[in-house]
Design a protein around this nucleic acid. Structure first.
Lengths: 341, 341
DNA sequence: GTGAAAGCGCTAACAG
DNA sequence: CTGTTAGCGCTTTCAC
């Protein structure tokens, strides 16, 4: 059995209060006593029980985080940033990796409640009714990172997905492309599904470019779906000259598909991604992508949550919107009529 | 304030004991009482405090895990598998992402101790002296996943890195290569540094191939280091015809470097990776790699740890060695004299 | 079947 | 400055 505060007190010949005091760095303890206690703590290898402390202080220093998929480059980057910030603030993370298992999410949310986590970070917006209800009466601050679910009274840390997609499409248009295909996300997602789609459509409309249904498909953000959709796109009578995928992963799938068909990016097809994952630089050609400031967003997510937790008054009750930023790399090139097959 | 068991008891007109009993699914509670209590629990949205329970049961259901870098494809995959298994067994994960910060690791280990985690999973072997000492007297089961640090009395779940590297090199040799460069790991790491290096050397020796110092370099497992090393390799008077990198990430760096020099994989240079990360399939050409059974290893790590925790007697006290498996994809091709520049 | 009461390891008044 | 004591929210003997 691990030694307890009582053991330390006994061995040092003081009261538990005194031990508690040196543990918590209070003054009002004579130096010699302080030292004596410290020594015993060392000898015994004593470390205070976080459990007992939590119980009496009514404070767990725990934050629960729900990630859709930890192996995704985008999510693992945000998570990494989040972990960094929480750790710097003496908070610990209990992580739930849902992997599309709604029941798992619900179960974890309950666990979070039982564990009395002080706050919760959620990184997806496909909340089912049960979950929404549970979330609504959890009684701890909740914050969404990189998404904004509809009808939720919680703060989101996001970019403006509509504008970002709009700007991405405009970049392609500015390059001279008119036949721009779209590999969208899940239209049940407002943030990354609907908004990005709307941005794409608006950009075409603003430039008097016809919206061609055949060029528009929706995937699940992952590489294979980008690949499959690109296959269909390549089969079009009149092929698009550029593709805009709303996730880097799908863009990669598209690039691979193009490559596997003996075509070249960007010569035969320009490809634009979304997110700014780390591997956009690690792929050839390097992927031009509409970047989200992942690090900053993770950090700010924690900042705001911590303020919410500490009950600070001056926390703006509105979303935090970060600037998106197009990073031009190698996967898009100007389109000229004659360069087509 | 969240409702407590007392509130439930009062409202249901029973004693806290009874409430506790229905909470824990004990028999010896009349059905009507049981139902009444359940109803009140529902009404109040009561959920038992994990903190209080932990304190009295002396059991936290927490496992601490130390990951070198959550954004790495390899580690995030193992972590994902680990999380899956722990969650299935009603354990929760507190994760520490060290990112090469030794102090952070040490701090977290202390936090784990304070939190009374029931077990710890560690995924790296660069333990400094302080850490080793702390680990030695932590008093909870510890298990290493994918690495085996020297002189540690703990179980590791690993592959045989020597044999794996040996087999990888043999594959290249079997393809006719003689000038095989090596992009190694950190030689302070026994598992992924020394052992893989030794396997490579042994393979050459067993086939009477000269070991050329100029072909041997050591990186840090990450993509940029593979890139830089490849640069040097390409500058050799007599270029190697194949490269074996001990991580897929470094192999990717090497491939990129080769590509950026206007050369082709595998025509101008064969590239072999190590780990079997998910993206070996997502890159063109697809990367031939010596794969580790990541999912199984993660799962088994948790299995063994859980047995250790429950104090099962029949836990073999030795390491669990998984089979490595070469997955041939597109980045290596047979070498013939005439095909050289 | 059910309840009273004694802790689990710690902190925080409150005294001294 | 230092110690006594009453809980924090729950489980668990031990009676009834």
């Amino acid at each position: 059995m691990a030694p307890k505060i009582k053991d330390v007190a006994k061995r040092a010949g003081v009261s538990v209060t005194t031990v508690s005091r040196v543990l918590n760095g209070e003054k009002y303890v004579k130096d010699d006593l302080k030292e004596r206690v410290r020594k015993v703590i060392d000898e015994l290898g004593y470390s205070p029980s976080h459990i007992a402390r939590s119980l009496v202080r009514n404070k767990t220093n725990l934050i629960g985080v729900i990630v859709p998929d930890i192996t995704s480059s985008f999510y693992s980057s945000i998570l990494s940033s989040i972990e960094r910030s929480t750790s710097l603030n003496d908070y610990n993370l209990v992580v739930c990796n849902i992997m599309e298992d709604e029941d798992k999410e619900y179960k974890y949310l309950q666990v979070f409640k039982e564990m009395r986590v002080e706050g919760i970070i959620i990184m997806h917006e496909k909340l089912n009714d049960e979950t929404r209800e549970l979330i609504g009466k959890l009684g701890v601050p909740i914050i969404f990172s990189s998404v904004k679910p509809v009808e939720q009274p919680f703060i989101s840390v996001i970019i403006n997905d509509f504008h970002a997609a709009y700007d991405a499409a405009c970049h392609l248009i500015g390059l001279g492309h008119k036949r721009i295909a779209f590999i969208g996300g899940d239209m049940r997602d407002v943030t990354s599904g609907q908004n990005r789609y709307a941005g794409y459509i608006q950009a075409l409309k603003d430039h008097d470019i016809e919206v061609i249904k055949e060029y528009i498909h929706f995937g699940d953000y992952k590489t294979p779906s980008g690949y499959e959709i690109m296959k269909q796109l390549l089969a079009c009578e009149e092929r698009p000259t550029a593709v805009f995928a709303v996730s880097d992963d799908m863009a990669l799938g598209a690039m691979n598909c193009i490559h596997d068909h003996g075509l070249k990016v960007p010569d035969d097809m320009s490809v634009m991604g979304f997110d700014g994952s780390q591997w956009t630089e690690l792929v050839r050609p390097r992927l031009t992508s509409m970047g989200q400031p992942i690090q900053e967003m993770g950090k700010e997510t924690v900042n705001v949550l911590l303020k919410l937790i500490s009950g600070e008054q001056n926390v703006a009750k509105h979303d935090v919107i970060f600037e998106h930023k197009l990073v031009v790399r190698e996967s898009c090139r100007p389109y000229e009529e004659q360069s087509q097959t």
